[in-house]
Write a protein that binds this DNA or RNA. Sequence first.
RNA 1: CCAGGGGGCCGGGCAGCCGCGUUCCUUCGACAGGCUCAGGAUGAGCGGGUCGGAGGUGCGAGGAAAGUCCGGGCUCCACGAAACAAGGGUGGCGGGUAACGCCCGCCGGGUGAGGCUUUCGGGCCGAAGCUCAGGGAAAGUGCCACAGAGAGUAUACCGCCGAUGGCCCCUAAAGGGCACAGGCAAGGGUGAAAGGGUGCGGCAAGAGCGCACCGGGGGACUGGUGACAGGACCCGCAUGGCAAACCCCACCCGGAGCAAGACCAAAUAGGGGUCUCGCGCUGAAAAGCAGGAGUGUUUCGCUCCGAGAGACCCGGGUUGGUUGCUAGAGCGCAGGGAGCAAUCCCUCGCCCAGAUGAAUGGCUGCCGCCGCCGAUAGGUCCUUUUCGAAGGAUACCGUGGGUGGACACAGAACCCGGCUUACAGGCCCCCUGGCACC
RNA 2: GCUGCUGUAGCUCAGUGGUAGAGCGCACCCUUGGUAAGGGUGAGGUCGAGAGUUCAAUUCUCUCCAGCAGCA
Length: 140
Amino acid sequence: MRKTKDSAAGDSLPIYPLVTITVLTKRADFLAANKGLRNARPGFVLLTRPNRGQGKRFGITVTKKVGNAVVRNRMKRRFRELLRDALPEEGMADTDHVLIGRSGGITRDYHRMRGELSHALKAASEGKGDRPRPQRKPRK
RNA sequence: CCAGGGGGCCGGGCAGCCGCGUUCCUUCGACAGGCUCAGGAUGAGCGGGUCGGAGGUGCGAGGAAAGUCCGGGCUCCACGAAACAAGGGUGGCGGGUAACGCCCGCCGGGUGAGGCUUUCGGGCCGAAGCUCAGGGAAAGUGCCACAGAGAGUAUACCGCCGAUGGCCCCUAAAGGGCACAGGCAAGGGUGAAAGGGUGCGGCAAGAGCGCACCGGGGGACUGGUGACAGGACCCGCAUGGCAAACCCCACCCGGAGCAAGACCAAAUAGGGGUCUCGCGCUGAAAAGCAGGAGUGUUUCGCUCCGAGAGACCCGGGUUGGUUGCUAGAGCGCAGGGAGCAAUCCCUCGCCCAGAUGAAUGGCUGCCGCCGCCGAUAGGUCCUUUUCGAAGGAUACCGUGGGUGGACACAGAACCCGGCUUACAGGCCCCCUGGCACC
RNA sequence: GCUGCUGUAGCUCAGUGGUAGAGCGCACCCUUGGUAAGGGUGAGGUCGAGAGUUCAAUUCUCUCCAGCAGCA
């Protein structure tokens, strides 16, 4: 209830440009993004999926397989920095962008990954990319 | 200076651009209240609240934040008292502490450079340091496989002897033989372990059988708060190991954990609780008796239940938010005091993360650390010397330059005290031994 | 974050202070014209790692390392 009021207030302020990029926090959103387009690059995998008017959103996933907490946190920070730089210009409106960390994402040169992210976003906006993965078997 | 050992501390620094979380301040906007004034709707002013934007300001991961192995705070649950049992834990003594399985000091054992002694097999003493889950094995039970004759009431395979008794030979006597009865436990052998050790005497052979030394047991007494140490005197020696096997002794422990707990919103299903009426037998009633349940058990007690109806409240499944949430057994290479020390007391100063798909990052420059190269001020060495210096060598010291490389282990999640484990590199202190100099 | 549990042959599991086993699987042989089934023989183990207690540890104790499950 309060939230709707807040968003209405934000709409009534045309002074500030509304490029609000929100963060995915729900597990269900991440699972849904799994059904979108996949664009794999050496340091990361980009998932993109339209979200029916939820705005420009992003999320980051780094699994325990990649390393310990220090490595995972550093990778998430670098990804956030990449997305902060790329999404306002190159991101697609009303789309969830999910980056999945791979082992190269910690040592790969930042500028090189920035270029790769641009290419991946361009490919995704043109509808290119791998088919979604088949449903995972419920291991564990 | 070198080698070995122990302890403590730090764990990159500075700067630029762009970003993140949060405290406070200023300002802007939205929302819903409040108060005052005027009033017909309504308007004006004041002050704070929530949310959002902008600007400024302060702060912003660790020594292990890790493992979750101990001990507490805090919160909820349980709780009538005492005794007891069960389960778990700790284990030399004294001190420190909120407490501990932690820390300090001391005691005892082990190791130990080395020293003393020797019958050359060995025995004894023992610095610094390191190390020890270090109560009890004549309270009891149990176990000690295999091997071995024998493994805890010791035993006798090979072996030794056969003095005494027996048999045989030779006999005047002395003597000799057999290994039958029997004696022995020195030597061999088995084993992790064989029921004190060495030597001399002794003996048929042997044996603490006797003696000397060493070891061991008991121990008046002395010292010490105590663990314990010393020890007159007595005992030939009489009882191995395992308690991280059961157990005994002394001491300690209620359970769960911030996903504890509290509140708000949303959501909905027929489980639980409270109150009223009613309620086994005797009795008019009060009460008594019987049954069942609960409080770990017992005792003394206490409480509740019965049979349904009505009313009210909460739970179950489903998710979001707020709070708990950070000023505390706090920190200080500040000063003073007590103590060998751990630590404690007084004064002064300081504020040092509060995130929640989880805040410290991205890019860059300089410096710092290590190696290599050239041989440039200065040092050092050699040669020449007109004693001003010149030339050469060197990379050990220092300065400057170029180039390459390394920068670890690791991320708070309620908070503290420890332990354990991981860790590139660097700094400081102490102890022991050796070498040099005074 | 908190709390439990489990690590033994390729797989699933026993086991106990003294030589480590079973089933399936694997290899070879027999049987068959050939295969399956059946029978026989055999290989394969740092008992998760490291310390400690003990004469002796897979077992007992401690510390690490993996993996799994539960808790709003």
